[in-house]
């Protein structure tokens, strides 16, 4: 097993341990993938929290699970399943939001979609009797076996979505906090809403590949919520969300490397810890 061969535990010579992190190509790939994902999750997560769409984001992450499971069953790259299902899920969510029902009816519809997604995921898992990566890594994340080509796909998607978000940042901010006036000033509020859900879907699909489908929130919502808590300044808040996501990803990957627990656990615990700390300090 790969695990037994490389995991030597901490030597407590921190410099050596630090250097050891970059010795193996799979670990370098994981660090690069984690960095790309953290930047993207920080940016889109900040807007998601601002728009109060955490529930929609969570649903997209649940939809990522059947996407990956279906890809595993069909024998196509997992990334294809993640991106395909999350993209389609974003369109469905936009359609639900487009019906302009009350907030309660909307969240009920989103919740039903979420239940269906989970059920589908387990169907695909049981259909494919042996999934290469295993059920728990689909749900809780893995950083083993990330290839160069996967890193490249992550990079291309992340650069594209961050660029689009940056270009639309001001009108998106306007539409998110003050939609009536934004519409009167000629901002295409509905188009931005659809576009943002698609960006969110892509972010979830990317983040899922590191943290697993269930722990996407560790990177998408928690650093962003912490940043909103720390400052009401938009550009500073965005920067903070990215910095926090990067910090917990790097620390989580390093901790996971030296222990037997999955990376998703560390990333989640660290970001939750920071969030609680900030809440207590800024109370």
């Amino acid at each position: 097993m790969l695990d037994a061969a490389v995991f030597q535990g901490l030597s407590w010579n921190l410099l050596d341990d630090f250097r050891q992190l970059f010795t193996y190509p799979f670990m370098v790939n994981a660090l690069e993938a984690g960095t790309i994902v953290a930047v993207m999750a920080g940016v889109t997560g900040w807007f998601m929290v601002l728009r109060r769409q955490a529930f929609a984001g969570h649903t997209l992450s649940v939809i990522a699970f059947p996407g990956a499971a279906a890809a595993g069953w069909a024998g196509v790259p997992l990334a294809l399943g993640y991106f395909g299902f999350c993209g389609a899920g974003a369109l469905v969510l936009a359609a639900i939001a487009g019906t302009r029902r009350s907030l309660g009816a909307e969240s009920a519809a989103i919740g039903s979609l979420q239940a269906l997604a989970l059920a589908l995921g387990f169907v695909f898992v049981s259909l494919s009797h042996s999934i290469l990566t295993g059920l728990d890594s689909l749900l809780f994340g893995t950083f083993l076996g990330i290839t160069r080509s996967q890193v490249l796909v992550l990079l291309v998607v992340a650069v594209a979505t961050v660029a689009v978000t940056a270009f639309a940042a001001r009108p998106l901010f306007f539409a998110s906090v003050d939609s009536d006036v934004a519409r009167a000033s000629g901002v295409p509020v509905r188009l931005l809403g659809l576009g943002f859900l698609l960006v969110l879907g892509l972010s979830v699909a990317e983040t899922s590949q590191i943290t697993g489908a269930l722990l996407v929130f560790a990177l998408l919502v928690t650093p962003a919520a912490t940043a909103h808590r720390l400052t009401p300044r938009p550009w500073l808040g965005l920067t903070l969300a990215v910095a926090l996501a990067l910090a917990v990803t790097w620390a989580g990957l390093a901790l996971a490397y030296f222990s037997i627990y999955p990376v998703g656990f560390y990333v989640t615990s660290l970001s939750f810890g920071v969030y609680v700390l900030v809440r207590i300090v800024t109370r």
Partner: peptide, 10 residues
């Protein structure tokens, strides 16, 4: 935002 919120770009 009332001044330049509808402008695209960074």
């Amino acid at each position: 935002l009332g001044l330049d919120g509808s402008r695209w770009g960074i």
